[in-house]
Design a protein around this nucleic acid. Structure first.
Lengths: 298, 298
DNA sequence: GAAAAAACATAACACTGAGTTATGAAATTG
DNA sequence: CAATTTCATAACTCAGTGTTATGTTTTTTC
């Protein structure tokens, strides 16, 4: 058996104002309305709520105790109104993002931080993980959105694939820096740093070499473009990576040149296929996609 | 703008049961009632609440987020019902007790602990203080009840005065232990430990001596009976104290003998005079008074 | 202490929210 | 595809909460 909210509101208003008339003003309703609400509450409670002392209504000790609980309830209830509004305008909620480890340390955190800064009631989890796990957890709805690359497609995961420009990166002072653009032939004798041989990007890159009867050499193999950037910056060799990552490391002296022919990197934004995807996730993915614009291949 | 509680209850029930029909059973109302409550909530909220998936209603991510808040509100609201019941049966509340320092370490804490043990939702503060402060803070309603002695009465504090039996206490092996009862004449040569000279009890005790042309000697003066008990037990002298306190120290070897003539100790239970006194305070004072029964002077 | 003013309670009535049953439409299941 | 289940809608009732009008009690004022 619970109490009508209206009675609790009247109780709070009267306790606050010390008078039924003023409580009525506070609640913007008539005095008899409050009078009756309070007497209804009063008669369903086994103790006195107020005591008259020189024309003021003073809560009894029991009422004082009750008041604290009542205020908690009413405050929380009031906050629900705000919350629903925040939820519908994507200003509140929780976002679970999965990404490849390489993304967790470069572009993505900046975009996420910016996204959150205007949404104080949004919390987020950013989880770096292996591609297979990302897909798996997106399907199982453990994550609201996932960022991976070279995604093959899956029936229960919605995906948007974005082609990202790639560039050739050279260590500071490398002779090839003299060229305006780099072709496979230029790299035939270089120490190549590249992504895993089973990655889609590696395969398409080596295909570009094969078409010209060249072989893509191998000096260091690494999963992440970011690692490749570090290695090149340290003079370990040359590489072809996403321009987005390259720009992050440009300040370390990396030389960036266009690579021809274009072998774009295929980035995929995932979310659970069913409609349960949160508005927030959609908005974030949208924001993220826009942030990729400068590095996008057309 | 806040939401009708009923809609929130329907929302919770549907989220819990995954079906409107079963939610209606849960709420013990008809299915159309729940259907309408939910659609009303749905249309006052700007996002989808549920998604149909193979005949089950599954909350969207936003609804999931909202649900947590809604449950908080409803749980708190439900608790208010229990709370009002507890308050009226004195099973919940807060008790602020002031007492003389001597009481804070002997009988009172035991009674209070016992009182609280059957009332898990009652909290209490036990504050030892000087008599003047006790009165002052009772009047100012900082305390719900006060326990003091030799109280003179005051218009804005209700008081009940209880006469407590007093006894003569002797150190272990004291020659007077041979007597069945002790009279002033027996104490004429003893080292007397007594309460402050301006205390009502001291004055009435010395009067008993004066009536017999004897003088009440003085070896140590202390505010508290409990201190007197300790001193006597340690062999510092003899004293006349409340039997209640004496019994607390009997295990230390104190010898207890009746003292004649009877000079009862006047204990007073105070509470604020206006009707704001809490039911809990009344009940506690009642309990406390009953606990004094064995030591009461008749 | 009587008159004036303020605060509150009660009565009579209207409207809305929330309950009901009856029933049809849509989706799931066998 | 038929049967069953689930849900939505309609029509109606009732209680809760609002209103105004008015009387009663309490406080204040002179």
């Amino acid at each position: 058996m619970s109490f009508p909210i209206r009675q609790l509101e009247a109780f709070r208003a009267v306790a606050l104002k010390g008078s039924i008339t003023r409580a009525a003003e506070e609640m913007a309703i008539s005095q008899p309305a409050v009078s009756r609400l309070l007497s209804a509450l009063s008669s369903s409670v086994e103790f006195e709520l107020f005591q008259r002392v020189s024309g003021r209504l003073v809560p009894t000790r029991e009422a004082e105790f009750l008041l604290r609980e009542v205020e908690r309830v009413l405050d929380n209830l009031g906050r629900i109104g705000q919350l629903t509004h925040d939820l519908s305008t994507r200003k509140a909620g929780h976002l679970r993002i999965a990404c490849l480890p390489g993304f967790a340390t470069s572009h993505l955190p900046k975009v996420l931080a910016d996204f959150l800064s205007g949404r104080p009631n949004v919390t987020a989890v950013l989880e770096p993980d292996r591609p297979e796990r990302i897909l798996e957890w997106i399907i199982g709805e453990q994550y609201d959105c996932g960022i991976t690359d070279e995604f093959a497609g899956h029936p229960t995961a919605e995906s948007t694939t974005i082609l990202m420009r790639t560039v050739c990166i050279l260590p500071p002072g490398h002779p090839l820096a003299a060229k305006a653009e780099i072709w496979p032939a230029d790299l035939a004798r270089e120490r190549i740093i590249h992504t895993r041989r089973d990655s889609g990007f590696y395969q398409r890159l080596s295909e570009a070499f094969a078409l010209r009867n060249l072989r893509l050499g191998s000096h260091v193999e690494t999963r992440q473009f970011t690692a490749a950037c570090m290695l090149v910056a340290a003079g370990a060799g040359v590489s072809v990576v996403s321009e987005m990552d390259a720009r992050e490391y440009e300040h370390r002296g990396l030389v960036i040149r266009p690579f021809r022919p274009d072998v774009p990197h295929r980035l995929s934004l995932l979310r659970p296929a069913n409609a349960r995807a949160s508005l927030l996730a959609l908005e974030f993915l949208d924001t993220f996609e826009k942030s990729l614009e400068p590095f996008r291949f057309r």
